[in-house]
């Protein structure tokens, strides 16, 4: 029997708002994160992933409030990433109601942090986020700060190292594909998933339900993080009617347009497609 794959709505947070960007930049405000999270819980999300895209210290409280409000009504695993650099940071978001944290910059700058964190909180709590950019020679390098900071670390070696240091899962984001809606980087996902024995969550690029099926079937992903495809479906169906807090670029929301490259779909439709491809997933 094959393993059950997970579909994980990814919610990028800036201040009090859910946002979505292209290549993790050029952020658009989509609405209140809690409304989206509630809707995804009700329609069968396997997990929720919050990513604090600005990750500035002074906005930390607003993130913690969003986590706590979500944990109160969504009884599924909740992971939180963005700006987590110390054991104390981890403790704080876990205490707010998160089940897992994802580390990137803090882990690359100080790999021993992964070891300390997984020893202290358990491997299953520690997810390492790897932001990969394909190089002209076909290799992949890991970046930090949403793909802005070059660190010269090769992705495959880094993935093996984080497993060895005790990470429980890897979120693998293709910065080249992120927000483009042109499909996942199948080669990248497969390369990492076949090299490690911890679960790999593919992230970045879903433009239609079929992309999600492909990254599982061909990319060997254990789970898939999906943002735009789900968010635009929710918006299209009038779900985000409550207005976003007036902060940031809300023009997109007001314009009532959807992003042309995205073929939006709900969780039920996506899972239906996966099952028709004989992939096991929770109904």
């Amino acid at each position: 029997m094959s393993k059950t794959v997970r579909i994980i709505p990814r919610l990028d947070i800036k201040g009090p708002n859910l946002v979505k960007g292209i290549h993790l930049e050029g952020l658009r405000v989509l609405g209140r994160p809690e409304s989206f999270a509630r809707h995804y819980y009700e329609s069968g999300a396997d997990e929720l992933m919050y990513m604090d895209v600005v990750a500035s210290l002074y906005e930390r409280n607003s993130l913690k409030e969003i986590i706590s409000r979500t944990a109160r009504e969504a009884f599924i695993p909740l992971s939180v990433g963005g700006g987590i650099r110390t054991l104390e940071d981890i403790k704080e978001v876990l205490r707010a109601g998160a089940d897992k944290v994802s580390l990137n910059t803090g882990a690359i700058r100080n790999p021993i942090f992964i070891k300390e964190a997984s020893r202290k909180f358990g491997s299953s709590t520690i997810v390492v986020s790897i932001e990969a950019i394909r190089q002209p020679d076909g290799s992949y390098l890991a970046y930090t700060d949403n793909g802005r900071e070059y660190c010269g670390i090769e992705v495959l070696g880094w993935a093996k190292k984080v497993e060895e240091l005790g990470a429980g899962e890897i979120v693998l984001t293709s910065i080249d594909k992120e927000g483009t809606g042109t499909g996942f980087d199948i080669g990248l996902t497969r390369m990492v998933s076949e090299a490690v024995s911890i679960p790999v969550i593919a992230c970045g690029g879903a433009g239609k339900p079929d992309d999600i099926a492909r990254v599982i079937l061909e990319g060997k992903a254990d789970a898939v993080a999906v943002a735009s495809v789900l968010h635009y479906d929710f918006i299209k169906n009038g779900g985000a009617a409550e207005s976003a807090q007036e902060e940031g670029n809300t023009e997109f929301l007001k314009s009532n347009k959807s992003f042309s490259k995205i073929k939006s779909a709900g969780l039920r439709e996506i899972k239906g497609l996966l099952r028709s491809n004989e992939l096991e997933c929770r109904v």
Partner: peptide
């Protein structure tokens, strides 16, 4: 057959 441990997810 090498299996993925820990088991993480729905079963």
């Amino acid at each position: 057959k090498k299996i993925k441990v820990p088991q993480v997810g729905w079963n």
